[in-house]
Nucleic acid binder design. Sequence first.
DNA 1: GCTTGACTTAGAGTTAACTCGAAGCGATAT
DNA 2: ATATCGCTTCGAGTTAACTCTAAGTCAAGC
Lengths: 130, 130
Amino acid sequence: MNYTINEVARKFGLTAHTLRYYDKEGLLPFVERTPSGNRTFTEDDLNWIALICCLKDTGMPIKEIKSYSERALKGTETIEERKRMLMEHRMEVVRQMEKLQENLKLIDDKIGFYNDPANIPLMEERLKRK
Amino acid sequence: MNYTINEVARKFGLTAHTLRYYDKEGLLPFVERTPSGNRTFTEDDLNWIALICCLKDTGMPIKEIKSYSERALKGTETIEERKRMLMEHRMEVVRQMEKLQENLKLIDDKIGFYNDPANIPLMEERLKRK
DNA sequence: GCTTGACTTAGAGTTAACTCGAAGCGATAT
DNA sequence: ATATCGCTTCGAGTTAACTCTAAGTCAAGC
């Protein structure tokens, strides 16, 4: 019922190298080993990795994810700290979404500009005539 | 009516170093110099830099922004290519927004999980009891 | 005329996050 | 029993995007 490192890598679009790197950096503190020393991943580990990937993909640095992981390992006494970390990061993600909206608007404006033939004489490359 | 490199840096939250790096990498092909050799930025340059920053902040690599800039420098014959580049990148930005929504949802679920005292016995650190 | 401050260049150094290579071990297939 | 496969570790190498240093120029103020 458990998964090998390569099965997990495939599931998350990572490489085994990357998973080992995350493990070494302290992001996967729960992962156990088979008698022969190979990492073996449970369903719970997959859920944990999904959260780790989510935090990483939203720009949380490895070091901060590590500190979050360490708190999880410490036990229930750190629940409030962990919640605070996630709520703070949540605000950061909301800021990213707002910035992305703005940037999408700028790109759309530029595409719109290219779409209007009336703008051709105003193209950037023309603006530097001596 | 023109701006110095440090004024521009301040406006965009960059450093003069970074702007020179962008210039060296071919991202600012229109920027002219004063008689003494200093870069001098026009309003048009500011608009251009705003677009560059937008592309960079939405994950377009410097090399691709360079290739976009080179096309702009080439003239109106490249308008269609540039429009295609922006439209392709636009789709990428939309994908980023969708992914960000998903990730936000996962974070919210986790915060909700921490908020419900009934979940305390299910916390990650408990899931590894032997 | 000398100092100060903002600019210039080339090129070296830094950082985060991988990414890879080498050497080796343990379980299965011939 | 030997080859192969998938894993192991350690540590070095890579990449993108800066980030900084050193040495120097130029214009303005005292």
